[in-house]
Each structure stands twice: as structure tokens, then as C-alpha cells.
Computed example of a mutant assay.
Amino acid sequence: MDPDLTQKSVSFNSARFLISASRLNECPPDSGAEIAFAGRSNAGKSSALNTITANGKLARTSKTPGRTRLINFFSLNREDCRLVDLPGYGYAKVSRDMKDDWQQHLGHYLNDRRCLRGLVLVMDIRHPLTDFDQMMVEWCEHNRLPLMILATKADKLKFGQAKTAMLGIAKKLENYQCLEHLIMFSATSKRGVEECREALNDWLTAS
């Protein structure tokens, strides 16, 4: 492996679609470093990924939330570094059996993927800490996995309201050791993008 390639910082603009997987044995080899993005179907996860990577077509955005049913992997310029888009939950109009199947395979990924360096939990700043969000926070805490929260759609609130919402989230999660970054984010105004990129870079390049 080229030592120069392994040392370079991550360029998120370099993100390219790599592969989709419906189950763990279809994922890329479990090596290197991955950061996964999770969120309810209407939280703005795809828009956040597209904004962070400066690629409006990287992750599918849809007017029908919940259409992403696979685990999608994206390669980066730094060898063996990947971003991962996990299936969204909450609004998908699919059968109960299919939802159970998604959750089972998502659980396998989260529990068994050794190269997972951190989880980015995307939540709507206007409706934070839903049951799904809380479940993901608890999972990170239990598994000692670093957690970043992106409080998205901050442009939908006045700054004072957004600040109050952020303080409320921080207060509710103050006892969780897993939470390393809580970032006010807007795909529209680009608020929080650079802060998010810096934190992702630190996770991916940590030895």
C-alpha cells in the first residue's frame, strides 16, 4: 500500500458510490475505517450526505421518505476509508415483515462491523430525540461507539430557537459518554458542514 495514500487527509468531495448491500455478507471487506449515517426517513440524512460530499446526487433524496432500503457504501480518496448510508426508518410504506428484515440486517451491520469508527445520527432539530434516535444513542453508549449528532434543518428555525433546541438536546444527553459532537446543521445554508467534515476526518484518520 502506498504510504502517501494512507497519510493524506480525507477529501469528502471525492466520495463515489461503491456498492449496495442488503445483508452483512454483501458488504465490502471488513477492513480500514467506516463511518455510518443513520436517521429517520424524513430527517434529512440524504441531503446531509450530499452537502458534506458536495455531490447533490451521491445519496438519493426522495419525496417518498424511506425508499433507501439497502446499506450503501461510498469510497473516498483515502484508501480503505468509506462513508455508509444506512436505511432510514419511520415513514417507509412497506410490509411489517420487510421492516423486520431491514432491522435484522442493520443490526448485524452495527453489531458485527469491526471497521466502524463512528455513527452520525441525523435528526430534525424541530423534532429531536425520537424513539428511533434514542435507540441509536443507547446502542452507541452500550457499544462505546463514538457518536456525532447532526441537528438538521436548522434554517427552518430562527437562530434563537435553534440555539434553544441545541441546548435542550445537550441537556438530555449530558450523561452519555459516546456523544463526541453535537452540530447544528443545515444543508440549505451549509451551517455546520466544515465542523462536521473536520470531525469525520479525525475519526477516519485516527490510528
Rank of each mutant, 00 (worst) to 15 (best):
I149A: 05
Q161L: 07
R114N: 12
H108V: 04
A151W: 01
G160I: 02
G90S: 04
Y109M: 11
L129Y: 06
C115W: 05
L110N: 09
A92F: 01
Q161D: 11
P87G: 12
K93G: 06
M135D: 13
T152W: 05
Q104T: 08
E141L: 10
I71R: 06
E141M: 11
D124W: 01
L119A: 09
E138R: 14
D124E: 06
L70Y: 05
D101T: 01
M135K: 14
R144M: 04
R114F: 00
K156N: 10
S75N: 13
L147A: 09
M98K: 13
V122H: 05
K99M: 02
Q134Y: 03
S95Y: 03
C115K: 14
T130Y: 00
I71N: 04
D112L: 07
F132H: 09
K156M: 10
E138D: 15
L150K: 09
S95W: 02
R144E: 09
W102P: 01
L86K: 14
H108R: 12
G90R: 08
R117H: 02
R69H: 13
Q104S: 06
L119C: 08
D100S: 10
K93V: 03
G160H: 00
Q103R: 13
A151R: 04
Y91F: 15
G90M: 06
D133H: 05
S95C: 06
R117L: 04
A151K: 03
C81V: 13
L119K: 09
D131M: 11
K99S: 01
R113I: 07
D101A: 00
A151Q: 06
T68N: 12
M98F: 08
N72L: 08
G107F: 11
H142L: 14
P146N: 01
L147G: 09
L147H: 08
K156H: 08
E138K: 14
